[in-house]
């Protein structure tokens, strides 16, 4: 059944945290950066947070360093790279206060191994950091919006489910308490928004629909879908078809290629339209310049 249509921007307008995910290679980092830029343009103080051990944006914007502590970008927002260990370090330092105790904690062989494999600790540490501003826990974060360039779909779901899993296992003490708080923030859609980027190709679209469904049923939240890199035909479809037969060895070959892509796009966009309530399109942008890509993607999102 077709759901009531809403603007895709519902996922980030007025929210404090927005998670951006998608199948690997669909442009989710670009969509996350574009949302960060648009909200900066709208006058909000924005942090674009990457999750993991390596920074995509470091090379994208040719920045000297991207680490746990936010760095400013030319685009007006800040960027940080968070992983389980860096988030836990900050949290431990904040609460243990004593540098000596903190060093003892992190230089200890048991702790190092434990942090790496203890069930759920990494996820809880990362989500703890992302939601810390809203929960008023840990070092203060002065941002109106945190855009999270999250993991690809499977791992993103595991991350978002971690507090629920942890609070089922640990009901008492600080771990149980923090997990319950995180879960409440994640489920609160006036605070958190969810964006899923996709290309109009079979596998990304199917994965997107499955992920949106799991977000709904397993996390209890709605999401906006951004269809990225959509090609528009330079002429009418009938004219393109005519060219295929009129110039089969020359430009007709390219016309065939365009027509096949266009057909696939149309079919998959219709499928998305039928299945999701918030859908936006971003056109194919003929540029490799990061600033142009982010700006134009942002402009396309602004119109949603």
């Amino acid at each position: 059944m077709q759901a009531t249509k809403q603007a895709a921007a519902t996922a980030w307008k007025g929210r404090k945290i927005v998670f951006v995910s998608g199948k690997g290679g669909v442009g989710k980092s670009l969509v996350a950066a574009a949302i960060a830029q648009e909200e900066t343009r709208a006058g909000r103080k924005v942090l674009l947070a990457e999750i993991g051990d390596t920074s995509y944006y470091k090379d994208f914007w040719n920045l000297p360093h991207v680490g746990h502590d936010p760095v400013a970008t030319k685009a007006g927002f800040d960027i940080a790279l968070w992983n389980g260990e860096s988030c836990l370090r900050e949290y431990v330092l904040f609460y243990l206060r004593l540098q000596r105790l903190y060093s003892l904690f992190f230089e200890n062989k048991v702790m190092k191994s434990l942090i790496n494999v203890a069930p759920g600790l990494n996820e809880i540490a990362i989500l703890g950091k992302i939601t810390s501003g809203v929960r008023k826990v840990g070092p203060p974060m002065h941002y109106d919006l945190i855009v999270v360039d999250c993991y690809a779909t499977g791992h993103a779901l595991a991350l978002l489910q971690a507090p629920k899993g942890m609070m089922e296992a640990i009901k008492f003490g600080p771990m149980g308490h923090h997990s319950r708080e995180m879960e409440a923030v994640i489920e609160n859609q006036s605070i958190c928004g969810y964006v899923v980027a996709t290309l109009l190709e079979e596998m990304p679209v199917v994965e997107t629909l499955e992920f949106c469904e799991k977000l709904k049923t397993q996390v209890g939240v709605d999401s906006s879908v951004i269809a990225n890199k959509i090609l528009s035909l330079p002429v009418e479809e009938a004219q393109l078809n005519q060219l295929k037969t009129q110039d089969p060895r020359g430009l007709g070959e390219f016309a065939k290629y365009l027509d096949a892509i266009f057909d696939r796009q149309r079919e998959l966009f219709a499928l998305l339209e039928k299945s999701v309530s918030r859908l936006a399109r971003v056109p194919f942008i003929f540029s490799a310049d990061p600033e142009v890509l982010v700006k134009k993607t942002g402009e396309a999102l602004r119109e949603t």
Binding site: L96, I170, F172, G173, P174, M175, G176, H177
Partner: peptide, 8 residues
């Protein structure tokens, strides 16, 4: 233990 609780 202080940070996570006795149950964890």
């Amino acid at each position: 233990e202080t940070l996570t609780g006795a149950q964890f």
